[in-house]
Design a protein around this nucleic acid. Structure first.
Lengths: 125, 125
DNA sequence: TATACTGTGTATATAGATATAAACACCAAT
DNA sequence: ATTGGTGTTTATATCTATATACACAGTATA
């Protein structure tokens, strides 16, 4: 299964971390379900035009955090995760990015009303 | 002058880049004005509990981008920047973070209406 | 006026994190 | 057994962050 993932080349956040967060999002949002096979580290690295070691690192971190299970020779699979935990992780991840965005907005001296307008504009794009 | 800057320790984005973006924000938003002296790389590094080399790198990058001027032995100062350019940079920076936040929200399968609610919640916090 | 001093930015060398390629080991199917 | 798919390990380059020693500008002071 080809995952809807994209890495930003110029970004300062590490590629392995971008992959990690996006796969986590796919899992906790229910886009992929328990037991489903994830793409092989090679297939994914080819898809994202990055190294195999990078995709592997993302998978390693995800496994350490309990989101996926890997077994040598067979592949990598979505782990079983409590529904409540999924919902929490999902809300937390999104809420966090919103807080950051608002922080940046305030740092640039925008009023709440201006931020609302910018948000709507970005939402409609 | 002590700048209102803070670095996130656990963040995956480099410290020098965090500093860079926040000082850029202070400049384009008019919190600091043309010709004003910025804190010395040592004072800033002490304030942020990071290395002198890191603050220096941030300043180097900012100078390359034309936001500041440094002169050996004297210090570092806010460069002269076109008002129009400031306004553009400001809008662009904020808009970009909003787009990212919304992208993350959509990745987590939230509807626009849910995103609006989350945004308002984060705004009111 | 000379000189020491304290503040600035600068350069060199080094450790750790991030990204890569290439060779290895395991599993399932042919 | 062989083949083609998995994940794994080893060695290496680049980026990020640090400490230490250096060079320049202004100021106080003998």
């Amino acid at each position: 299964m080809k995952l809807p993932i994209s890495v930003q080349e110029g970004s300062r956040t590490p590629i392995y971390h971008q992959i990690e967060e996006q796969i986590k999002a796919l899992i906790v949002s229910g886009h992929v379900s328990t037991g489903m096979p994830l793409p092989s580290i090679r297939a994914l690295s080819k898809d994202l035009a990055c190294s195999v070691i990078t995709t592997r690192r993302a998978y390693q971190n995800l496994e350490q955090q309990g989101y996926i299970k890997t077994s040598q020779g067979r592949g990598t699979f979505v782990a079983e995760i409590d529904e409540r935990a999924k919902k929490e992780a999902k809300a937390e991840a999104v809420y966090e990015t919103f807080r950051r965005a608002i922080e940046v907005g305030r740092r640039h001296n925008y009023t709440d009303e201006e931020l609302r307008n910018l948000f709507e504009e970005a939402l409609m794009e």
